[in-house]
Amino acid sequence: MNSIWTIARKELSDSLRNRWLMAISLVFATLALGIAWFGAAASGQVGYASTPATIASLASLGIFLIPLIALLLAYDAIVGEEEGGTLLLLLTYPLSRSQLLLGKFLGHGLTLALATVIGFGVAGVAIAVLVQDVAIASLAAAMLRFIGSTVLLGWGFIALAYVISVRVSEKPIAAGLALAIWFFFVLIFDLMLLGTLVASEGQFSAELLPWLLMLNPTDIYRLLNIVAFGDSAQLSGVLSLGADLPIGAAGLWVGLVLWFAIPLVGALFLFRNRRI
């Protein structure tokens, strides 16, 4: 446990040193406040629209940003140590490969969690203080849900980045594959789903179809933040399938947890079987 924390602590202090933590927090806070105040600008007014609309917009932007930041933060976790020549040395210390990877995960995971809590937390507090007639309780609940799911989504992509990082031997390749993962889950997946939907002309099993959304953590994340308001009208595109999912919010949470637990276990397994 001690060595896991030693590795995590170095990652944390690295992200303080290179200003990553500060930069991500700032981006999140700016984004949240910007959307809160100007989200309704398209309909001709400036000012806080409503909590559900704000959270829905945030979640839509979050699926682009959170995976990207998580992948950038973590893609070189192992391959970077290897290229820097420190991996071999680290492994000669009383430190197992699992401990090294879990320490990295703890460090990166805490960095992302801290940035999310600080960035969106500040925005949430600002909205509560500055907007006159917002319902504090529902805002707080929505913000907590949003922050919690954002952290889980980020952890999922950190774990996916590790799967790459323990497999490849060069940093540029890891970066390329990380971008490919982002591209697939954020852009391609929904297109494919939509394509399947249209091409099958309704022949596709209506029970099975909504479950396909569970194969993409970004879809689970959006569903989770939108469905909670009981307002299916906000669900657009393939997400409307999610209204038919029989698992409810708890199931979606479990889905997000699985989406970081399974890749993490996979990365641990791959790393342990890798030749140094």
């Binding site: 040193r17 820097g84 020549g85 040395l89």
Partner: peptide
């Protein structure tokens, strides 16, 4: 190790 390297920062 041969050609030992460390964290440059």
């Amino acid at each position: 190790p041969e050609n030992v390297m460390f964290y440059p920062q």
